[in-house]
Simulated assay, not measured.
Amino acid sequence: MLILLPPSETKRTGGGAPYRAEDLAHDEQLAGTRAAVRTALEELSRDEELAAKALGLGVKARGELEHNRVLESSGALEAMDRYTGVLYDALDAVSLDADARDWMREHVAVQSALFGLVRAGDRIPAYRLSAGSRLAALEAPLKRSWIRAHADMDWAAHGWILDLRSNDYAALAPLPEGVGTKLEVAQRSADGAVRALNHFNKTAKGDLVRRLARSGAELDGPEAFGRWALAEGLELQLGDRPGSATLVTELGAPAGVTGGAGSKRAAR
Rank of each mutant, 00 (worst) to 15 (best):
M1F: 08
I3W: 13
L4G: 06
P6K: 13
P7L: 11
R12I: 05
R12L: 10
T13H: 05
G16V: 10
A21W: 13
A21K: 13
A21Y: 09
D23F: 11
H26V: 08
E28Y: 06
G32Q: 01
T33G: 07
A36F: 05
E42K: 10
L44I: 00
D47M: 06
E48R: 12
A51L: 09
A52T: 04
K53C: 01
K53H: 04
G56W: 04
G58I: 05
V59H: 13
A61Y: 02
R62T: 09
G63F: 03
L65F: 03
L71V: 00
S74A: 13
A79D: 07
T84E: 13
V86D: 07
D89H: 11
D89I: 03
A90D: 10
A93W: 02
S95V: 03
L96R: 02
D97C: 06
D99Q: 14
R105A: 08
A109P: 01
V110P: 01
F115P: 03
F115K: 06
R119D: 07
G121T: 09
G121Y: 11
D122I: 10
S130A: 14
S133I: 08
A136F: 11
A140C: 10
A140F: 10
R148W: 04
D152P: 07
D152A: 14
A157T: 06
A157P: 06
G159L: 14
R165N: 01
S166Q: 02
D168H: 08
Y169A: 03
A173I: 12
T181C: 10
K182R: 15
L183D: 08
E184F: 15
V185N: 08
A190L: 07
A190S: 06
D191N: 01
A193D: 05
V194Y: 02
A213K: 02
E218P: 04
E218W: 08
D220I: 08
E223Q: 15
A224Q: 07
F225M: 12
G226W: 11
G226V: 06
E232I: 00
Q237D: 09
Q237G: 11
Q237R: 15
Q237F: 11
G243P: 10
T246D: 07
A253L: 13
P254H: 01
S263P: 06
